[in-house]
Lab assay of single mutants.
Amino acid sequence: VKKMAKAIMADPNKADEVYKKWADKGYTLTQMSNFLKSKTAGKYDRVYNGYVIHLD
């Protein structure tokens, strides 16, 4: 998940494709939050927020 999150950060155009894969795998927002937690607070906030919007 972190590898794909980094791919989104490097190229935001990949976001919809990645979010669809995550949704197809049934990842919940709680799971995504836990996967994307980082020592650098807020590092993956943009990715998480994008997934929230995708699921909505």
Rank of each mutant, 00 (worst) to 15 (best):
M32N: 02
Y19W: 03
M9L: 15
D24S: 12
D45Y: 07
F35S: 02
A23W: 07
K37L: 08
K14C: 12
V52H: 07
K2A: 04
N34P: 00
A23S: 12
W22K: 01
K3T: 10
D56K: 15
N13Q: 11
K14S: 08
A7V: 11
K2D: 02
K37F: 09
K43R: 08
G26K: 06
V1Y: 04
G50N: 03
A5E: 01
L29M: 07
L55A: 02
L55S: 02
M4C: 11
K6Y: 07
L36R: 00
G42C: 08
N34Q: 13
A23C: 11
W22D: 00
M9A: 04
Y44V: 00
D45C: 09
T40L: 08
V52Y: 06
V52F: 06
K43M: 10
K3R: 13
A15Y: 03
D56N: 15
D24K: 11
P12V: 07
L36Y: 02
K20E: 07
M9T: 03
T30N: 13
K14Y: 09
K6L: 13
Q31L: 07
K39S: 13
N34S: 12
G50M: 08
V1S: 03
R46D: 15
A41H: 11
F35W: 15
K39M: 09
K20D: 04
D11V: 05
K37W: 10
Y51K: 01
G42V: 04
K6D: 15
L55W: 06
A5G: 03
S33E: 11
G50K: 04
N13E: 12
K6C: 12
Q31C: 08
A10F: 09
V1Q: 03
S33Y: 14
K39F: 09
K14W: 06
R46E: 15
H54L: 05
A23Q: 10
I8A: 07
K37R: 12
P12C: 08
P12S: 08
M32I: 15
S33V: 10
V18W: 03
K39W: 08
A41D: 11
Y19Q: 00
Y51G: 01
V1R: 04
K3V: 10
Y27P: 00
K3D: 11
K14H: 07
F35E: 04
V52A: 14
W22N: 00
P12L: 07
M9H: 05
A41E: 13
T28H: 03
A5Q: 03
Y51E: 00
W22T: 01
P12A: 10
M4F: 05
K3H: 10
F35N: 03
V47G: 01
I53G: 08
F35Y: 09
D24F: 09
Q31N: 05
E17W: 12
P12G: 07
P12D: 05
S38D: 12
D45I: 07
M9E: 04
Q31S: 06
D45A: 11
V47D: 01
K3M: 13
L55M: 08
L36C: 04
I53K: 15
A10C: 13
A15T: 06
T30I: 13
R46Q: 15
N34A: 13
S33G: 12
D16Y: 14
D24L: 12
K39L: 08
K20N: 08
A41R: 11
A41G: 09
N13W: 12
G26I: 04
K6V: 07
V52M: 13
D16T: 14
D16A: 14
K2V: 10
D11P: 03
R46Y: 13
E17Q: 10
A10K: 14
I8C: 07
H54D: 01
L55P: 00
A15E: 04
D45P: 01
G26P: 04
K37C: 13
P12T: 05
G50D: 05
G26Y: 04
N13A: 14
G42H: 10
T40I: 11
S38H: 08
Y27A: 00
D16R: 10
D45F: 06
G42T: 06
M4A: 10
D16I: 12
Y48C: 06
S33L: 13
N13T: 15
I8N: 02
N49D: 14
K21P: 00
H54N: 01
M32D: 01
Y44I: 03
G26Q: 05
I53F: 10
V1K: 04
G42F: 06
V1D: 02
K6R: 15
A10D: 13
D16S: 12
G42Q: 04
D24A: 14
N13P: 05
K25P: 01
Y44F: 09
K6Q: 13
T28D: 07
A23G: 04
G50P: 00
D56Q: 15
Y27D: 00
H54I: 05
T30E: 15
F35P: 00
G50I: 06
Y27I: 09
N13C: 14
M9C: 09
S38F: 07
D56M: 15
K21Q: 15
